[in-house]
Amino acid sequence: MKFLRIILFPFVPIYFLITWLRNWMYDLGFISSKSYDFPIICVGNLSTGGTGKTPMIEYLVRLLREDRQLATLSRGYKRKTKGFVLADQHTNADKIGDEPFQFYKKFSDISVAVDEDRQNGIAKLMGLKTHPDVILLDDAYQHRKVKAKCNIMLTAYNNLYFKDWVLPTGNLREPRLGAKRADIIVVTKCNNDLSEAEKFEMASKMNLKKHQQLFFSYIDYAPHVKSESDTLDLEHLPEFLLVTGIANANPLVEFLTRKGLKFSHLEFRDHYDFKPSDIEKIVENKLIVTTEKDFVRLSGQKELHGKLYYLPIEVKIDNATQFDGLVKRIIN
């Protein structure tokens, strides 16, 4: 894969030019963005996946849900439907995608919707009898047809955007210059003991604009694993199979290893559609631990009932009080 990316390097300038030209046309108004008279928060990134968008959306839901009527709007990656779909009691991951379905199962007091066309999705949400007064756009940083009130751009600590190249050699969906659109930049998946000197070094390399604020976050793993009806203490887990279908499982593997737990790891690509042959292999194990995103897809497999657990996570933000206050001020 690395070799293929290297030999595709001659295409980097072409991709760079196309994406830069598109952004330039939006910046100058040759292509219009639609503004709204209510707050829209966009959470996204410059790179392809693995920066922690889902935990950040969940953080914002917890932050704002008590004072605001919220909705999340996603594309619904790899769903088996088209157009606008509003999650309800008949919804599953196939209809809206695994991450939106995770939002729906976790937060019963918000609206969860998917639509490839974000403008249409917003219009449909605002047409609901009980419509939201804040919409959280998931993975929409490049969807410039909508002008958000607040753009939160994520970049993972182990793959910082200013060290990366655009596709196809690198992982950037657009040039690094796109970072200037962000109101808030969050370096995600940091070590929880990140030094002030390292924070300063990263900030200096980002060349932040006057309107931008930089924050650092890390993943907080729960001390237990959960199933639909049971909870097990992480410290006393017997040997298990870890199943992951996420962009980067390394932080999770490292965490479980540091805990001294005994496990084997069955790794799949991000948003993997598990096949019957995969389930046959997984079900041979007495205890299976997975991520919450994978759990919402695997929990429908009857063979795994009583065996399948997930490890809950939350994002923690350094200077959380400052971050929370900033978000609330921007959308008020």
Score class of each variant (00 low, 15 high):
residue 151 N to I: 08
residue 185 I to D: 02
residue 219 I to W: 01
residue 214 L to C: 02
residue 224 H to M: 10
residue 182 A to F: 03
residue 223 P to D: 09
residue 173 R to H: 08
residue 154 L to D: 02
residue 239 E to P: 03
residue 230 D to F: 01
residue 205 K to G: 04
residue 157 Y to L: 10
residue 180 K to E: 11
residue 196 E to L: 14
residue 157 Y to M: 12
residue 213 Q to L: 14
residue 167 L to T: 02
residue 163 K to M: 07
residue 160 L to F: 01
residue 191 N to P: 07
residue 157 Y to C: 09
residue 238 P to R: 02
residue 224 H to P: 00
residue 235 E to N: 11
residue 225 V to W: 01
residue 210 K to S: 12
residue 169 T to D: 01
residue 158 N to G: 00
residue 185 I to C: 03
residue 204 S to G: 02
residue 212 Q to I: 03
residue 181 R to H: 04
residue 190 C to N: 06
residue 220 D to Q: 12
residue 149 K to F: 00
residue 231 T to R: 13
residue 221 Y to A: 09
residue 155 T to L: 09
residue 202 M to K: 12
residue 176 R to L: 14
residue 228 E to P: 00
residue 203 A to Q: 12
residue 189 K to Q: 14
residue 165 W to K: 13
residue 176 R to F: 13
residue 207 N to M: 10
residue 207 N to H: 13
residue 160 L to R: 11
residue 176 R to H: 00
residue 158 N to F: 07
residue 167 L to Q: 02
residue 185 I to G: 00
residue 177 L to S: 14
residue 197 A to I: 10
residue 157 Y to G: 07
residue 209 K to W: 04
residue 160 L to N: 10
residue 228 E to C: 04
residue 169 T to S: 14
residue 165 W to M: 15
residue 205 K to D: 10
residue 159 N to C: 13
residue 224 H to Q: 07
residue 214 L to K: 01
residue 237 L to P: 03
residue 148 A to V: 05
residue 198 E to V: 12
residue 167 L to V: 08
residue 157 Y to W: 15
residue 210 K to Q: 14
residue 148 A to R: 02
residue 198 E to M: 14
residue 149 K to S: 15
residue 202 M to T: 11
residue 206 M to A: 11
residue 237 L to C: 08
residue 206 M to D: 05
residue 147 K to L: 08
